Amino acid sequence: TVKFKYKGEEKQVDISKIKKVWRVGKMISFTYDEGGGKTGRGAVSEKDAPKELLQ
């Protein structure tokens, strides 16, 4: 599970739902399947990112 803040809201998403991951400076950005055909997005700092996300 990845915990992150998006627009001031605390969120979390299961690693299995993450589609795409990329690095922006010291942040790790990602998109994930929100269900219902929607794609969500989020970002975590490199130090807070789970190891599975960095692979």
Rank of each mutant, 00 (worst) to 15 (best):
S29K: 15
G25K: 05
K3Q: 09
V2M: 08
G8I: 02
P50L: 04
E52F: 14
G37R: 04
D14I: 07
M27K: 07
K7G: 09
K20Y: 12
Q55G: 08
R23K: 10
W22Q: 05
A43H: 14
K11H: 09
D14Y: 09
Q55C: 10
S16D: 10
M27R: 07
M27H: 06
D14G: 07
S29L: 13
T31I: 15
K38A: 09
E9Q: 14
S29D: 04
D33P: 02
E10L: 15
P50N: 04
K19C: 09
K51A: 13
G8P: 00
K38C: 04
V13M: 04
D14M: 13
D33S: 06
M27G: 04
Y32N: 00
D33G: 03
E52Q: 13
K11M: 10
Y6Q: 08
E46H: 09
K17N: 10
G42W: 03
Y6I: 10
E46S: 09
E10Q: 12
F4L: 03
G42F: 04
S29V: 13
I15D: 01
M27C: 10
Q55P: 06
S45W: 12
E9H: 11
A49W: 09
V13F: 04
Y32A: 00
D48Y: 13
K19R: 12
S29R: 15
G42Y: 06
G42D: 01
W22R: 05
V24I: 14
R23Q: 08
V24W: 12
E52C: 04
K11S: 03
S45C: 09
P50I: 04
V21P: 01
E9D: 08
A43M: 15
V21Q: 02
K7H: 13
K47E: 14
R23M: 07
K19H: 10
D33L: 06
K47S: 13
M27P: 00
D14P: 14
I15H: 03
V13L: 06
K19D: 08
E46C: 05
V2G: 01
A43K: 13
T1G: 05
K26Q: 13
T31N: 04
E10C: 09
T39W: 13
V24L: 06
V24P: 02
Y6E: 08
D48Q: 10
D14E: 13
Y6S: 08
G25W: 04
D14W: 08
K17F: 09
D48K: 10
E46T: 11
K47P: 04
T31L: 14
L53W: 08
F30P: 00
V24C: 10
K19G: 06
S16E: 09
Y32T: 01
R23F: 07
G40C: 05
F30V: 01
E46A: 13
D14K: 08
F30S: 00
G25Y: 04
Q12Y: 13
F30Q: 00
V2N: 01
T1S: 11
G25I: 02
Q12N: 09
K3I: 13
K20I: 07
K38F: 09
G40T: 05
F30N: 00
G35Q: 05
V21F: 07
V24F: 09
K38H: 10
L53Y: 02
G37W: 03
E52M: 09
K51L: 15
T1N: 08
L54W: 09
K38Y: 08
V44P: 00
G35I: 05
P50F: 02
Y32F: 14
T39V: 15
G25V: 02
E46I: 15
V21W: 11
E46Q: 10
G40E: 06
E46F: 13
G42P: 00
K7V: 03
E52Y: 12
G42Q: 02
G8L: 05
A43I: 14
D14H: 12
Y6R: 06
E46W: 12
K5V: 13
G25L: 03
I15T: 05
G35Y: 05
D48P: 01
V44R: 02
R23V: 08
T1W: 12
V2A: 02
